[in-house]
Simulated scan of single mutants.
Amino acid sequence: MQIPALLTGLQLTDSAFPSGYYTLSHGLEGFQQSRAVSPRTLPALLHDLLRHGAGPADATALALAHRAVSAGDWEQLVAVERRLYVAKLGRESRQAAVRTGRQLLDLAGEVYGTPEIERYRELYRSSRVHGCQPVVAAAVHAGNGVTARQAVTCELFAFAASFTGAALRLRLTDHRRAQVVLHGAAPVIEEAVEAALRRELADLGSCTPLADVMAGRHERADARLFAS
């Protein structure tokens, strides 16, 4: 990979990139409110969400959309985003994907301004896409020469980093232990990347029933620190 493309992937993964990830707990706050997670079980929860949630859904959508953008098949990209959107059963998860995706789209137009980003923006203006973050990210990565493998790896690492950051704010871990948890997720991220790159459109969709229940409870909580 060329150095400029690699730097783009790293920039988008950086927690300082203002895409709105810091407002999300990826369901963790729901687990914490229900006392269904502890510092000891935190790594297992992250691994499960990577394997059965973010990997089969968002990462798979990103891989498929990246493939579509690289081939110039924008109809296929629309099909990928539509399937991802309906696969998100909870209101919060759909809203989070769209809100962070629109923020990324706005920033990407200003920061990178590639033809791929502008083409996606045209689809968005015509209401053919919702602006789901993984699909927007695919257009950004592909437009900047980041390979599908690198793009999916970056996005799953960003998910894991955001999850552990939320755990810090929820006092489920400390800064040192958070790094241990994040490092321990590396083999699972690699596994999830490989699986995402092999899936087809019909395979897109997560299976995290307990997380869906916790998300539903979180929507009705009296007080919330995070948007999801």
Rank of each mutant, 00 (worst) to 15 (best):
L64I: 07
V37D: 10
V37T: 13
R220A: 14
Y112D: 01
A63I: 09
V129F: 02
A139F: 04
Q150Y: 00
A137P: 00
P209G: 06
V69A: 08
L46M: 15
V213M: 12
V98S: 05
A195T: 09
S126V: 00
D106H: 12
A79M: 06
H66Y: 07
S25C: 10
A148M: 07
R94I: 10
A167H: 08
L62D: 03
L24E: 14
R99I: 08
R199T: 00
P134S: 12
Q179I: 05
S70K: 08
V146Y: 01
G145F: 03
M1W: 01
A215K: 12
F31A: 15
P134T: 06
A142W: 04
R51F: 02
L28S: 11
L89W: 00
A65D: 07
A139C: 07
A167K: 04
H66D: 09
T147L: 03
D222V: 14
A68C: 11
P134N: 05
L107I: 15
G72E: 08
T41F: 06
Q76L: 11
Q179L: 14
Y124M: 03
S19G: 13
T153D: 15
H47V: 11
S25E: 09
P115D: 02
T41W: 06
G101Q: 08
W74C: 03
Q103R: 15
I189H: 05
R35C: 10
H141C: 11
E219Y: 08
E155V: 10
P18E: 08
A186L: 13
W74S: 05
M214R: 15
Q133H: 14
H66G: 06
H183D: 13
L50S: 11
M214I: 04
F17M: 11
G30T: 11
T173R: 05
R99F: 02
D48G: 12
G101S: 07
S162G: 15
V98I: 15
S93N: 10
A192N: 04
R171I: 00
D14V: 02
L197C: 06
C207S: 11
A96C: 10
E200F: 01
H47D: 12
A5Q: 03
H66E: 02
P43H: 09
T147G: 14
L105Y: 00
C207L: 03
Q103D: 01
T147K: 00
L77D: 05
R35K: 15
P18Y: 08
V136T: 07
Q32W: 08
A96V: 12
P56L: 06
D14A: 15
P18S: 07
S15D: 12
S15G: 08
A16R: 15
C132S: 13
E116G: 02
A196F: 03
E110Q: 12
V140Q: 04
S162C: 07
T60I: 04
Q103N: 12
D48S: 15
R94P: 04
E194S: 07
E191A: 12
Y22N: 09
R176S: 10
F226D: 08
V80D: 04
R119G: 00
F226M: 05
